[in-house]
Design a protein around this nucleic acid. Structure first.
Lengths: 148, 148
DNA sequence: TATGGTTGTAACAAGCGAGGTTACAACTTC
DNA sequence: GAAGTTGTAACCTCGCTTGTTACAACCATA
C-alpha cells in the first residue's frame, strides 16, 4: 500500500505559499487550482498542518502562511502531520500470531526492533530534508525553465 | 496508510519453515494455525513468494521450503515479492498538478528525486537484514524463553 | 487406479481508508 | 449587511485488504 498523496499535496501547498505568498492571497481555491484537487481536500489538509503548528490559516479573510522558518520544517514534520499512521508504525503487523507456537510467540520480539530500524532509516532521511531545500530547488527549476 | 501485514506474515512463514521444516511438513494449514489467518491467505502469499523465487512449494503432496540460502534472502526481497507497489514507488503522487502554474510544473522534477532518496534509505536498510539474521534471533529467543 | 491430503485459484463479501463533492454555519473585513 | 473565505458535516465512490467457500488440479501411496 502506497503512502497517500496527502504528503506530496502538502509539500505542493508549501511551495505555493513560498512562491506566491508575497504577491497573492493563498486561499484553498487558489491552491486547489494549482494542485487540481477539490478545495475541501485542501482545507482538511491545511487543518492538519495548522494543528501540527506548521502553517497559520486566516479565518474569514482567508489565506495561509508558514508558521515557522522554512529551514525548521522538515519533510518528516509534514509527513507526521498529514499521514497519521496507526500508533505511529509504518508496518501493519498481523494481529494474532499463535501464542501456543514457539514461532508465534517469538515473531513480535524478533521483528519489532527490525521494523523500527527500517522505519527510522526512512524518518532520518525525511528529517534531513527541509522546506528550505525544496524551496531552493523550486526557485532554481522555475528560473531555468522560464527564461526561454 | 500502513504497509500491509502480508510482509510480516511472510517473515513469519519463513521462520516456521526454518524452525519446523526439518521435523514437519509445512503446509498452508500448518502455517495458518501458527499465524492465525485463513489458509487461503497463506497459499496466495506462498504463490507470490514462489513467483519471486524465494520458496519452493510442493503441489499435491504439499509443503513449503526455502528456494535459496537464508543469507541470500533479504527483507527487501520479501517486501518486493509481497507488497507490489504501484510502479515500484512508495509515495503516491497527486496525479494532475496544474501545468499552467509554475509550481504545478516544478513539483514533480523537484520532489521525485527526494522521494526516491527517502525510499532508497528504507530499501537499503531492508536489504541489510537477511533471513539468516531473523532465524538467528528467533532461535535465540526460543532458547531463552523455553528453558524455564 | 482409487483415495486422501494438498495446492492453486476463482468468486464473492465485508470493512476501511482515500479522494471527491455538496452544503452550510461561522468568521472577518469592508 | 454583503462578500469572500474557512471549518466541518454528511454523503458517495473506488480500490485494497482480509476473510471465506468452493472446487479443480495435482501427487504419493495403498
Amino acid at each position: 500500500m502506497q503512502i497517500s498523496s496527502r504528503f506530496t499535496i502538502a509539500v505542493h501547498i508549501f511551495s505555493c505559499i513560498d512562491t506566491f505568498g508575497a504577491s497573492e492571497k493563498i486561499t484553498s481555491d487558489f491552491l486547489a487550482s494549482s494542485i487540481q484537487v477539490n478545495p475541501v481536500i485542501i482545507r482538511k489538509l491545511l487543518g492538519q498542518l495548522r494543528d501540527a503548528g506548521l502553517v497559520a490559516v486566516q479565518r474569514g479573510t482567508g489565506g495561509a502562511s508558514l508558521a515557522k522558518p522554512a529551514d525548521e520544517i522538515s519533510l518528516l514534520d509534514i509527513f507526521n502531520a498529514v499521514e497519521s499512521l496507526e500508533s505511529g508504525k509504518l508496518f501493519h503487523f498481523h494481529e494474532n500470531p499463535n501464542p501456543n507456537c514457539p514461532v508465534g510467540r517469538s515473531i513480535h520480539p524478533v521483528l519489532d526492533g527490525r521494523l523500527d530500524q527500517i522505519q527510522s532509516a526512512m524518518e532520518r532521511e525525511m528529517q534531513r530534508i527541509t522546506l528550505a531545500d525544496i524551496f531552493a530547488d523550486t526557485k532554481k527549476y522555475i528560473a531555468i525553465t522560464s527564461h526561454s
